[in-house]
C-alpha cells in the first residue's frame, strides 16, 4: 500500500469518525430513555441510560437511571446511581430526596437512612485554596509593581495567604471525610460476605441489597469490605456491588 493510499484511508476514517460524532445526539437518546421510563418500560430505559453512560456521565443521567432502577424494584442499583448523582451534584435537593427515599426503602434491613447534606465536591473544595494562593500571589506581585500601594497590597496578600491556609485545612478534612464514606453499594440480593477472597471460602453473613459498605482493600475481583453497621469485615465479589467513585 502506497503512502498516498494510506493518507486516503486515514482521511476517510477520520471523516467517518467525525460524522459519527456529529450524528450522535446524547440529548435525543436521553429523551428517548426518559420516554421509555415514563411509559414504565424500565428495562428499555435502563438499557438506554447505560448506553449513554458509555459516553460519559452527568447528574441527570445518574438520577434518572436511579429512578428507573427504583421503579423496577432494584433498590441497590437505585441507591448506587443516586449516590453517584449526588457525588456529581451534591447540592441538588431533588437527587438528595430520591436518595433519601431509596435508602428509606432498605433501612429496615440495615441501610443508611437519609440523604447526604449539601456540600461541595472535592474538586470544588480543592479549587478554593488554589484560588486563594493565586490571589495572594497576585496581590504580592502588584505590590512589587506599585510600591506606593505596597503596604495595602501586602495586607491583602497576607489575608489571602491565611485564607488559603484555612481553606487547605477544610480541604483536608473534606477529603478525609469523603474517603471514609461508604463507597460500595450491594446490588444483588444474595451477596455473601466471605472470610477470604475465594468462592469456596466460608460465608460470614449474607448482606441485604442496598446496604452501603466501605472498601478496605482490593484483590483481583474481590473487595475487602467493612459493614459499618455490624463493623464486620469480609470479602465480597466485585459483581455483587457497585462502586461509588470519589468526586
Amino acid at each position: 500500500m502506497t503512502l498516498q493510499t494510506w493518507r486516503i484511508w486515514v482521511r476517510f476514517l477520520m471523516a467517518v469518525g467525525l460524522f459519527h460524532r456529529l450524528a450522535a445526539d446524547p440529548q435525543a437518546d436521553f429523551d428517548q430513555a426518559n420516554r421509555a421510563l415514563a411509559q414504565s418500560k424500565y428495562s428499555d430505559a435502563i438499557e438506554q441510560y447505560h448506553r449513554l453512560l458509555r459516553q460519559g456521565t452527568s447528574p441527570a443521567l445518574e438520577n434518572n437511571l436511579g429512578l428507573a432502577y427504583y421503579q423496577s424494584g432494584q433498590m441497590g442499583q437505585a441507591i448506587a446511581h443516586f449516590r453517584r448523582a449526588d457525588r456529581l451534584a451534591p447540592r441538588d435537593a431533588e437527587i438528595q430526596a430520591n436518595l433519601r427515599l431509596a435508602r428509606g426503602k432498605i433501612s429496615k434491613s440495615g441501610g443508611i437512612e437519609g440523604g447526604e447534606g449539601p456540600t461541595l465536591t472535592l474538586n470544588e473544595w480543592a479549587f478554593l485554596p488554589l484560588g486563594a494562593v493565586w490571589l495572594a500571589g497576585g496581590f504580592w506581585g502588584l505590590s512589587r509593581l506599585n510600591p506606593r500601594a505596597a503596604s495595602v497590597l501586602h495586607g491583602y496578600a497576607w489575608g489571602a495567604g491565611l485564607l488559603a491556609l484555612g481553606l487547605g485545612g477544610f480541604v483536608a478534612r473534606a477529603a478525609i471525610l469523603r474517603y471514609q464514606e461508604p463507597d460500595l453499594v450491594v446490588v444483588r440480593p444474595d451477596a455473601a460476605l466471605r472470610q477470604s477472597p475465594f468462592p469456596e471460602a466460608k460465608s460470614i453473613i449474607n448482606l441485604p441489597e442496598g446496604i452501603e459498605l466501605h472498601v478496605e482493600d482490593v484483590r483481583s475481583d474481590w473487595f475487602l469490605v467493612r459493614d459499618l453497621n455490624s463493623n464486620r469485615t469480609g470479602w465480597l465479589r466485585q459483581d455483587m456491588v457497585e462502586r461509588i467513585p470519589v468526586r
Binding site: P26, D31, L37, A60, L61, N63, V246, R247
Partner: peptide, 27 residues
C-alpha cells in the same frame, strides 16, 4: 420520587479528584 430530569447536561468522565494529581500541588 422527584420527577425525571429532562436535561442531560454535559457528559463528563469519572476521573480521580484533582487532589490526587501532582499538577494541583504544583499549582
Amino acid at each position: 420520587l422527584r420527577p425525571l430530569k429532562p436535561d442531560l447536561g454535559p457528559l463528563v468522565a469519572w476521573s480521580p479528584p484533582i487532589l490526587t494529581h501532582a499538577w494541583y500541588y504544583g499549582g
